[in-house]
Design a protein around this nucleic acid. Structure first.
Length: 271
DNA sequence: ATGGGCACCTGGCTGC
DNA sequence: TGCAGCCAGGTGCCCA
C-alpha cells in the first residue's frame, strides 16, 4: 500500500501511542522479511523508552534510548494499534508492546518490509545516507530537479522515482505528478526545461500533499479497528485508468511499461 | 557514473 | 470449481 503519504499517515497514527512511552517488549514471530530481523534486536527494545517516531523517505525511524530502528512497510506492510491479548493473525510478523499495554502490530503478506537496527547515528546508515531531499520540505524544488537531471538520459518518470533524486515518489504518484505537470513520462530527464521542472516539482508536492490531507481525514483515529491503513480513496487522474477518458481532455488514458512498472498518461495533455 | 534488469514474496484477479 | 498465468503501490543490488 504505502507511498510516502501513507507512511507519513502511519507515522502520525502510531506516534501518540509510542512517543515517550516505555517499551515492554518486541515480540517477533517471523524474522524472514526483506532482510532477516537480527536476533537480539529484542534486547535493544526491552525496557527502554521511545524518544521519537520519525520518518526519512519511506523509512519510519523508531528512536529509542538505545538507538534507532528503521521500519519499512515495503509493498504490502501496515501497522495497527491493538492490545497484546488480541490473537495474532497470518502475516502479523512482530509486535511492539508498550508498558501501557498497547501493541503496535506489523502485518506484511509479501514480506518486502523490513526492521533494521541503525544504531546511534541512523542518518549515517547505508539505507539513509545517500537519499535525496524530502519532497515536502525545503531543499526540494524545480531547480534541484533540473540541476540533478543535467546530462541524464533516463526517462523522467524513472528519474523522479529514484530516491537519490527525491524521496517518496512511488509508482502511482509519479504518473499522477507528471500528468498534473503536463510532461510525457518517456521524455529524457536531461532534456526537460527548467520551467517544466519547476512545474513538476510543484506537481509532486501537490499530489503528495493532497494524499496526505486525504489520509489525515480518513484515519483520524489510529486506534483498534480503525488502525488498518488502506489505500486512500484519493481521486487518481490517470493511474489505473487505461482507456478511460482523461479527466482534463477526455482523451483515452494510455498505459505503457517503464522499468517493469506500469505508467499511465494522457497523450494529449502530456505531449 | 549511469542505466537496465532482477530479486525478494504472497495474494488477488482473469480467463480458460 | 480449479488452476495456470499475470499483476501488484518498493527498492537494493548486480552487471555491462
Amino acid at each position: 500500500m504505502p507511498e510516502l503519504p501513507e507512511v507519513e499517515t502511519t507515522r502520525r497514527g502510531i506516534a501518540p501511542w509510542l512517543e515517550g512511552r516505555g517499551v515492554r517488549a518486541l515480540v517477533v514471530r517471523e524474522r524472514r522479511l526483506r532482510w532477516r530481523i537480527p536476533t537480539g534486536i529484542e534486547a535493544r527494545f526491552a525496557g527502554t523508552r521511545v524518544l521519537a517516531v520519525g520518518r526519512r523517505a519511506k523509512y519510519l525511524l523508531l528512536t529509542l534510548e538505545t538507538g534507532t530502528a528503521l521500519l519499512h512497510l515495503g509493498m504490502s506492510g501496515s501497522l495497527r494499534v491493538t492490545i497484546p491479548a488480541e490473537p495474532a493473525g497470518t502475516h502479523d510478523h512482530f509486535d511492539l508492546v508498550t508498558t501501557e499495554g498497547k501493541c503496535i502490530r506489523f502485518n506484511d503478506p509479501r514480506r518486502f518490509g523490513s526492521l533494521v537496527w541503525a544504531g546511534a547515528e541512523p542518518m549515517r546508515h547505508s539505507l539513509l545516507a545517500n537519499l535525496g531531499p524530502e519532497p515536502l520540505e525545503s531543499g526540494f524544488d524545480g531547480d534541484h530537479l533540473w540541476q540533478v537531471a543535467r546530462g541524464r538520459r533516463v526517462a523522467i518518470k524513472l528519474f523522479i522515482m529514484n530516491a537519490a533524486v527525491v524521496v517518496g515518489v512511488g509508482n502511482i504518484y509519479a504518473s499522477e505528478a507528471l500528468h498534473r505537470a503536463g510532461i510525457n513520462p518517456r521524455r529524457a530527464a536531461g532534456r526537460i526545461s527548467r520551467i517544466d521542472m519547476r512545474k513538476l516539482a510543484a506537481a509532486i508536492r501537490d499530489v503528495l500533499e493532497d494524499a496526505l490531507t486525504m489520509g489525515g481525514t480518513t484515519l483520524r483515529d489510529f486506534n483498534f479497528g480503525e488502525g488498518e491503513l488502506g489505500y486512500f480513496g484519493q481521486r487518481l487522474r490517470v493511474y489505473d485508468r487505461a482507456g478511460l477518458p482523461c479527466l482534463h481532455c477526455a482523451t483515452p488514458v494510455r498505459h505503457i511499461n517503464q522499468g517493469q512498472r506500469s505508467t499511465y498518461f494522457c497523450p494529449v495533455c502530456q505531449p
